[in-house]
Design a binder for these strands. Sequence first.
RNA 1: GCGCGGUUAGUUCAGUUGGUUAGAACGCUUCCUUGACAUGGAAGAGGUCAGAGGUUCGAGUCCUCUACCGCGCACCA
Length: 905
Amino acid sequence: MSELSSRYNLKDAEKRLYQEWETKGTFRPRSDHGKPASGKPYVIVIPPPNVTGILHMGHALNNSMQDILVRWNRMKGRDTLWVPGVDHAGIATQNVVEKKLAKEKKTRWDLGREKFLEEVWKWKHEHGNTITRQLRRLGASCDWTRERFTMDEGCSKAVREAFVTLYERGLIYRGHYIINWCPRCQTALSDEEAAHKDVQGGLYHIKYPMIGKNPPYEKMGEDHMVVATTRPETMLGDTAVAVHPNDSRYKHLIGKKILLPLVNREIPVIADEFVDPEFGTGIVKVTPAHDPNDFAMGHRHKLEQVNILTPDGKINEKGGAYKGMDRFEARKRVLQDLEAQGLFVRRDSHLHAVGHCYRCDTVVEPYLSKQWFVKMQPLAEKALKAYDQGKTVFYPDRWTKVYLNWLRGIRDWCISRQIWWGHQIPAWYCRSCQTAGKEDVIVSRTTPENCPHCKSKNIQQDPDVLDTWFSSWLWPFSTLGWPEKTKDLEKFYPTSDLITAPEIIFFWVARMIMAGLEFRGEVPFNRVYIHGTVRAQSGLKMSKSLGNVIDPLEVIEEMGADPLRYSLVMLSAQDVYLSREKFEVGRNFTNKVWNACRFVLMQLQDLAFASTDSKQFEGLELSLPSRWILSRFEEKAAQIEKHLSQFEISQAAIELYHFVWDDFCDWYIELAKPMILSQDAALKLQTQKALFFVCEKILRLLHPFMPFVTETIWQQFKNKAQDSSQWADTLMLAPWPVEARGRFEDRRAQQAIGMLQEAVSGIRDLRARFQIAPSDKLKAVVVCKEKETQEILKTFEREVKVLARLEELRCVQEFQKKGAMVGNVFTAFDVFISLEGILDLEEEKKRLQKKIKETEQWIENILKKVENPSFAEKAPKEILEKEKEKLTDAKNLLISYQNQLASIG
RNA sequence: GCGCGGUUAGUUCAGUUGGUUAGAACGCUUCCUUGACAUGGAAGAGGUCAGAGGUUCGAGUCCUCUACCGCGCACCA
């Protein structure tokens, strides 16, 4: 009968549908097609996934949410743009290609810079579009004609512009500082890229002998001093020992000399307030080249900086006998040798935070080297000011504090990386000027041919590249054309919302805000929505190494993109804990929608009457169920709209789920069935109209959440409708169905259907409890407490009979029980069925007794409240009224229960 | 160490500015293949809202403390 099968299966249809949308240009802004738009443009830039990325659940959630917002705004008629793109992910991508080379037993140095970069570009062209292909599978309605890459020509130009501008403004400098160094990647990292993890390590106590004293060293403070360190190998670079100036234990030693063991270097005992006398022995070894604090101390005391490490984490020639050893090997050997010399005191177990490379998890070294930095304080001040002016709004609000705390404690940003894949720093050094002892740095937007100072051609570009985030922080405007003055930039900047995960608030969100203000004088987006993190059921992050990943593409293959999206979004009120079964919610719901629509299609072979216009109901005497569902629809649509506008996406999805499933499917469709089968042609027609109308509107509400299924069915609707000329080409462009409030508002219908639902459920409950087979003919009586109730329920006699499978139903106000009857009670009425041949009513007696107790307790509670003089005095009137109503209801219930008990007892 | 979350039904979680007898999903029990859907329908059981104080007429909701879990940040060697 229908061409739709009883289970949706859109595996192939999804791809086809997506292609159609894309090729027709539906994802592009209305203004691209010269179409009018309403309101301000709605613009989102995608958090660009790494070019090495493959879609994981975090992406799936993030992009589902963006797509929901984008599709919703598009349907609202706004000029809508979602800019997609990919990040070149400097270190990550270089690592991938280096690993590939390693399989051929080659290193990047074997190839040389140029050849290596060719290899990376080759890799990018072959594998770099995996993630964008996968985003399409998810249904992401990005404007792919505007797709960008952080290393494309435009973005590269933006990077240069940004660098040079900051340099010109005195906000970029180069200098020797302690930075985080990854010995495996062999590059500097920013503070954010060195992730601190707690490590159970050792705190080693070591004797440093005083000059002129001989072993055995026994008197602390006289012939030796004991230092405590977590990294013993760094002692090879010690250039002092420090104590607190007021520490009476050691005051007499300040200015004395110590003989640094193993290297036999004379080093001074200095006094510095940094030292905490309480910690360890109160004596600190000072290693200015390998510790940020020691570095600062070294500056204060003009100490020598002895770098003992090679870039790959081995001991260099300054380490004497330890030269060539890996740093951890050297640690062991240093300890052994100290022990052999009687200088090792003890090892305490010690929990401390150790920096790890966020790309390869190697322990990073604080390392002294010459790097480029951005002076962040002035940028942060602008961002803080923008916040004060209300220009930065985070959802949920709690992230604001995280953001502000970071800005307030901001430190300079190390932006140079000693890798090859990335934007090479636009700085050149002039050999001639250098030799002449003059300023040798040339920073330029264009590649210079010779030195602007001395005209020498002997210039060389800085070999380092910029931190990947140095291009990402420009993303909201570089993707729109900056630094060129493009139409897109003018039209779509600043963007509307940024949707992202909490992990990159510092890396990306905060920096984008700073860049936006610095380069464009405006915040880059009006609102920031931070959604939850996706975790495995166990609570751990999903990661390949833990083997606990659920591949979103497998879910798409198995169930479809819509179930994946809906499940994720429904679960996303906070962090999302996933297991395979959790996707069944979305799958079942998608199937429910599919079948409900299939039913509607089947009922309406002839859709000539089908209209999506609400005016069709004007002057029409609609039945109560239809009035009810229209009223519910209007109410729910407004709620969903409200939730979406506040980024309560999961709440919107949950509301929609219940409206569709409970109200529309379980009640309205069931109520509509007898009306459609009715002999009353007018009733039949208006029911069909309402059924169709609401169903089509539901498809619109659902579309942002489950685009594929809804579009598929909607096209069926459209094909069948006689006059489809007024329909949009695609559901994607059909107007969002939130109309002027109150058009369908109908409290009476809501109240009436509420009663009907109670009556039907009450009878069904009796049926179930007394095990009356569905086929058994049943007579029921509804005893109404008010005449009005009786009248309302009378109009539903037929519906109740069908839904509760009754042979006979009587609605009365006065009722004399005859024979054995059992019932259920409600505030406005009681329902009864007659029992034949059922003798055991003990269970029912117990149940009623329990109910009576509960109700008595309830009444008592209300009385306690109402009779409290201060309640009457202080509570608002409406609450007081409510309580009184409750009391009446409760008393009515109690009477009903007592009557019931008496009647069967 | 500082900060931020969380602790509600067997499980995973909602619960908006304090105001019906605290909800949902999954799971569980019972019944049902009725012409949209068994990825379904009907009904049911299940919670002293982590603990202790406090504010209030009224607290799951606000305040304080405690316990446990998670996550950030941080230079205690």
